[in-house]
Amino acid sequence: MQTALLIEQILNGLQFGVMLFLMAAGLTLIFGVMGLINLAHGSLYMVGAFACAAVAAATGSFWLGLAASLVAAAAAGAIIEVSVIRRLYDRDHLDQVLATFALILIFSEGTRWIFGSFPLYLDIPPLLRGAVPLPGGSAYPAYRLAIIAVGIAVAIGLYLLISRTRLGMRIRAGESDREMIAALGVDIRTLYTVVFALGAALAGLAGALVGALQSVQVGMGEPVLILAFVVIVIGGIGSIKGALVGAVLVGLIDTLGRFLLPMALAGFMDASSAAGIGAALASMLIYVFMALVLAIRPQGLFSAQR
């Protein structure tokens, strides 16, 4: 049974990790290409979750809701890039932080005004409601496995986009020398809008997928945003590969820490104390790991070109 539980927790860590990757991939693209600190990225995650829940409730189709989450988050990202973010590229990071923090408040109050203060709930689609048998006799929810598969597919798609397409070539060039590609005739404003909308769509997808596992509520994106920043610091700012590796590491460290530390502490304290202290230590492990990575490789595990 312990082996089955360990396998289940590893899969939980992978599922948590790929969800963080969907958030962190868009964030690291935006930061790497534009040099922009976007605190409103978590709000786009929330927009995707609410759009999916609202459309799924209206139509009865989770898949239409999932498509709506991509469209809504990408559209919201494009609108705020054109109307607000575009004015911040040449400003210092403090101005960017203040402006995007204001966007968090605007999105939160706007969402509360539209949907109310009560959480929404999103049902898992019937196709993915079953469970898949695991070694050891236990079973694992098919929906969580589907999230892992989506994360892997997105990672492959982003790799191909960045390394094999003309848009990817422009994105890589924008990371290295934005003035040069502008001088070569590339419409840098359009490129920035596309990159921002792509990052927003990935955040919206993450919100929609997680919305079926927890309630959809105002403010749900901020805790995830903090972990997404941790991921891109560990993986290397601007690196999609780094975002994937960092997200999986963070997901496994957090999940396995919450599983293994209480068991280890239960040997010399009561079960309730061991559970509480173990959970607290597991949360700290992520930041300890980030500090170790920064001490050894201040640029992160991977450079922006990898």
Rank of each mutant, 00 (worst) to 15 (best):
A57D: 13
V216Y: 01
M23I: 15
I162V: 05
L209R: 11
I234N: 07
C52M: 08
F50D: 07
R297F: 14
A40N: 07
S117R: 04
G174D: 01
T3V: 14
L70M: 09
I296D: 14
F31I: 00
E109T: 04
L14Y: 10
A173I: 02
G276M: 13
T3Y: 14
G238R: 01
W113V: 04
L265K: 07
L5R: 10
A279N: 15
L160A: 12
G168C: 00
A295C: 12
M180S: 11
G136F: 01
L225N: 07
I85A: 05
G32D: 00
V18T: 13
F31S: 10
A68L: 01
L285Q: 06
L36G: 00
M19G: 14
L27A: 09
L202W: 11
I37W: 00
L256M: 14
G174Q: 00
L294F: 09
A291H: 10
L36I: 02
L158Q: 06
M180Q: 14
A243P: 09
M290A: 15
I286Q: 06
G238T: 02
T59C: 08
I237K: 00
S272D: 15
L105P: 04
P223H: 09
L292D: 08
M1A: 15
L256F: 08
G276S: 09
G116K: 01
F289Q: 00
L227S: 13
L70N: 01
M23E: 09
V154R: 08
H93N: 02
G221D: 09
I181E: 05
F289D: 05
I234F: 09
I30D: 01
T111A: 12
M23A: 14
G13C: 07
F229H: 03
I106T: 03
N38H: 05
G130K: 04
R164D: 03
L249V: 13
G35D: 02
S83D: 03
L36V: 06
M269S: 08
F62R: 00
A102C: 10
L66E: 10
L225V: 13
A149K: 01
Y89F: 08
I106E: 04
I106W: 06
D254V: 02
L225T: 09
A203Q: 10
A304T: 01
Y45L: 12
L225E: 10
G130L: 04
L198M: 07
S272H: 13
R91Q: 11
L103M: 13
G242P: 12
S61V: 07
M220T: 03
I240M: 03
A197F: 05
L120A: 11
A173Q: 00
L244P: 05
A139T: 13
S215L: 08
M263K: 11
F21V: 02
L44C: 05
R178H: 09
G185S: 06
E179T: 09
D90S: 07
S273D: 13
F16A: 14
L249E: 11
V210M: 14
V210T: 14
F302G: 09
A173L: 05
G110Y: 05
M19E: 12
F107A: 12
G185Y: 14
E81G: 02
S176G: 06
L281G: 11
G238S: 01
S61A: 00
